[in-house]
C-alpha cells in the first residue's frame, strides 16, 4: 500500500511539473500551450546525449536550460507575432510547434529506447520495511525542490512579481513599466525548463522512446483537476492524478476485475470528469464570473 502511494507521488511529481508549465503559460498569456509534450521529450533526449559527456546531474541542468532556450526562441518567432489574435489560433500554433519539436526530438531517439543515464535505474531501497524504487523518491524530492524555488521566485523576485502582476491585470502591469513581451517569454522559458526536467524523470529507469510523449498528456487532467489558473492546484492535481493512477494499477484487478486490464491508464481522465462535474473550474481555480 505505502509502496503504491509512493509510486503514485513519484509519478505524480512528474505530472505536477508538466502541469505547472501549462499553468504558468496559461496565467501569463491566457492560452493553453500544447507544446509541453515536445519540450518534455526534447529534455529527455538532450539529457540522454549530454549525460554521456557531462554526467547525469549536470546534464539535467544543461538540458533544462537548453530546452528553456528553445522555448524562448519558439515563443519569439511563432507565438509573439500572434498576440492579439484569437486564443484558439495560438493554441493551434502551439500544437504545430509540438509536432515539429517532437519529430526532431524523436529523430534523435531513433527506433531504440534511449537511456537517460540516471544513477537510479530500477534500484530499490528498503525504508522501514517498505521496498520502493529509488527513482520515485528522486522524482518527488526534485519536484519538491523545484516547486519551492518557483514559490520563492514568484514571491520575492522582481520578475516573479512582474509575472504575477501581468497575470492579474496586464494593462496595470504595463503601466508599471513591466514589459509584457518579457513576461510571455519568461513563461515559455520556465514551462520549457520544467517540462525538460519532467521528461528526464519520466526517462529514469525505463528510458525514452518514440511514444514516451503520451505521458505528458496526463498533465491535462492534472491542470483541470487543480484549476487552470492555480499553481498550487497544478501541484496538487498532478500528485492526485499520480496517486489515483498508481492505486488503480495495484488494486483495480482485485477490486473491480470487470473493468478489464490496464484500466489505470484512463483513471486520470475519470478523475478529471468527476471533478468537472462537481467543480467545473477545478479544485483551486477561479470560478468564471459572467454577467448575463
Amino acid at each position: 500500500m505505502i509502496e503504491t502511494l509512493i509510486r503514485g507521488l513519484g509519478n505524480g511529481s512528474v505530472y505536477a511539473l508538466l502541469a505547472l508549465g501549462f499553468v504558468i503559460i496559461y496565467k501569463a498569456t491566457r492560452v493553453i500551450s500544447f507544446a509541453q509534450p515536445s519540450f518534455m521529450i526534447a529534455g529527455a533526449v538532450a539529457v540522454s546525449y549530454l549525460a554521456e559527456i557531462t554526467g547525469f546531474y549536470l546534464a539535467v541542468v544543461l538540458a533544462a536550460l537548453l530546452v528553456a532556450g528553445v522555448a524562448l526562441v519558439i515563443e519569439r518567432i511563432a507565438i509573439r507575432p500572434m498576440i492579439g489574435r484569437p486564443v484558439f489560433v495560438i493554441a493551434i500554433i502551439s500544437l504545430g510547434v509540438d509536432v515539429v519539436v517532437r519529430v526532431v526530438a524523436n529523430g534523435f531517439i531513433g527506433t531504440d529506447v534511449r537511456q537517460v543515464g540516471d544513477p537510479w535505474g530500477f534500484s530499490l531501497v528498503t525504508l522501514g520495511g517498505v521496498t520502493i524504487q529509488q527513482r520515485w523518491i528522486a522524482m518527488f524530492v526534485a519536484a519538491a525542490v523545484l516547486v519551492g524555488l518557483l514559490f520563492l521566485f514568484f514571491r520575492h523576485t522582481r520578475y516573479g512579481l512582474a509575472m504575477r502582476a501581468a497575470a492579474f491585470d496586464q494593462e496595470t502591469a504595463l503601466a508599471q513599466g513591466v514589459s509584457v513581451g518579457m513576461v510571455f517569454a519568461l513563461s515559455w522559458g520556465l514551462a520549457g525548463g520544467l517540462a525538460a526536467i519532467a521528461g528526464t524523470f519520466v526517462g529514469t529507469g525505463q528510458g525514452v522512446d518514440q511514444l514516451t510523449w503520451i505521458i505528458a498528456l496526463k498533465a491535462l487532467p492534472a491542470i483541470i483537476v487543480g484549476g487552470l489558473d492555480s499553481l498550487g492546484g497544478a501541484v496538487i492535481g498532478g500528485l492526485a492524478i499520480g496517486v489515483v493512477e498508481s492505486l488503480a494499477q495495484s488494486y483495480q484487478g482485485d477490486v473491480a476485475p470487470w473493468l478489464g486490464q490496464n484500466f489505470a491508464v484512463v483513471t486520470p481522465y475519470v478523475v478529471m470528469l468527476v471533478v468537472l462535474l462537481v467543480r467545473p473550474y477545478g479544485l483551486f481555480g477561479t470560478p468564471e464570473v459572467e454577467r448575463v
Binding site: R158, L161, R164, A165, F168, D169, Q176
Partner: peptide, 24 residues
C-alpha cells in the same frame, strides 16, 4: 500613470504591489 479606478493588484499584498511599481 495612476489609472482610473485604482487598478490595484488585488491578489498581491500591499508591499508586493509597491514592488511591482518599482519594476523599472
Amino acid at each position: 500613470q495612476v489609472m482610473e479606478g485604482r487598478r490595484i493588484l488585488a491578489e498581491l499584498t500591499v508591499e508586493e504591489n509597491l514592488r511591482v511599481g518599482a519594476h523599472t
